[in-house]
Simulated assay, not measured.
Amino acid sequence: MKPAVFLDRDGVINEVLTKRVKFVNHPSQLYLLPGVEQAILAFNQAGLKVFVVTNQGGVGLGFMKEATLHQVHERLIEKLAKADAAIDDIAYCPHKPHEGCQCRKPEPGMLLNLADKHGIDLSKSYMVGDRDVDIIAGKRAGCTSILVAEGEHTDADATFPNLLDAAKWIIKDFDFKKEK
């Protein structure tokens, strides 16, 4: 069983609710946050699997078609590849908020499914998000939960202002756990 890093997408990997973009409903609206490529490359080089787990209620609400969501994710993969960084898989919940599914965070369904599919040890893995629903999903799945946000208060195991700073801590913690 391998460890992994599960990353929320909007607000952790790419811009959302900024001057440039409100929501990412088209590939042209995908802008990576500073340091994301370096953080994901560092995870890759450390031997950590990298997964994206993202609520995409805009599909269920009709703001975007599922095919367009796939195009957004293809653009994400292309942008990361230019920096030699890679994600191993992407899971998304297309359901409307409050639909009661088991995949929409804060439920841990996406993490559990990816862990089963890829042979991941959740107790040695990390969930990185920018909202409480991400932290709760990570904790419910048995992961160390990391908040990437400024001035937020949650029950996260650690908090950092951005993914690159979180990556440095995660890699040190991962190396420490390997030595045990």
Score class of each variant (00 low, 15 high):
169 W>M: 04
27 P>G: 13
5 V>P: 00
120 I>D: 04
8 D>R: 11
34 P>D: 05
86 A>D: 08
4 A>G: 08
30 L>E: 07
39 A>E: 03
55 N>I: 01
3 P>N: 08
42 A>G: 09
65 K>S: 06
126 Y>K: 00
162 N>G: 12
161 P>K: 11
36 V>T: 10
148 V>S: 12
113 N>M: 11
53 V>R: 01
66 E>G: 05
12 V>I: 12
149 A>I: 09
168 K>D: 09
172 K>A: 15
64 M>P: 04
175 D>K: 06
147 L>E: 15
179 E>H: 10
1 M>T: 03
117 K>R: 14
153 H>R: 10
125 S>C: 02
127 M>Q: 02
151 G>T: 09
11 G>Y: 09
97 P>S: 13
100 G>F: 09
24 V>K: 00
91 A>Q: 11
162 N>C: 11
162 N>Q: 10
111 L>R: 13
44 N>P: 10
11 G>L: 08
115 A>C: 04
165 D>V: 02
148 V>F: 10
126 Y>D: 12
137 A>V: 01
117 K>A: 14
92 Y>K: 07
29 Q>E: 15
37 E>L: 01
68 T>C: 02
115 A>H: 00
132 D>A: 13
62 G>Y: 03
41 L>F: 08
124 K>E: 11
97 P>F: 07
155 D>S: 01
128 V>T: 12
94 P>M: 14
174 F>A: 12
75 R>E: 08
153 H>P: 04
103 C>L: 11
164 L>I: 03
50 V>M: 05
18 T>I: 07
101 C>S: 10
32 L>K: 09
148 V>K: 14
116 D>Q: 15
24 V>P: 05
15 E>V: 01
151 G>Y: 15
112 L>Q: 08
146 I>K: 04
146 I>F: 01
75 R>F: 05
151 G>K: 12
116 D>V: 03
37 E>Q: 11
41 L>A: 14
7 L>A: 06
166 A>V: 06
19 K>D: 15
49 K>L: 14
93 C>I: 11
103 C>K: 05
171 I>W: 02
174 F>K: 01
74 E>W: 07
12 V>Y: 14
22 K>P: 01
54 T>K: 13
136 I>G: 03
175 D>R: 08
74 E>M: 08
176 F>N: 10
101 C>Q: 13
3 P>R: 13
84 D>G: 09
15 E>K: 02
49 K>G: 06
173 D>S: 04
49 K>C: 06
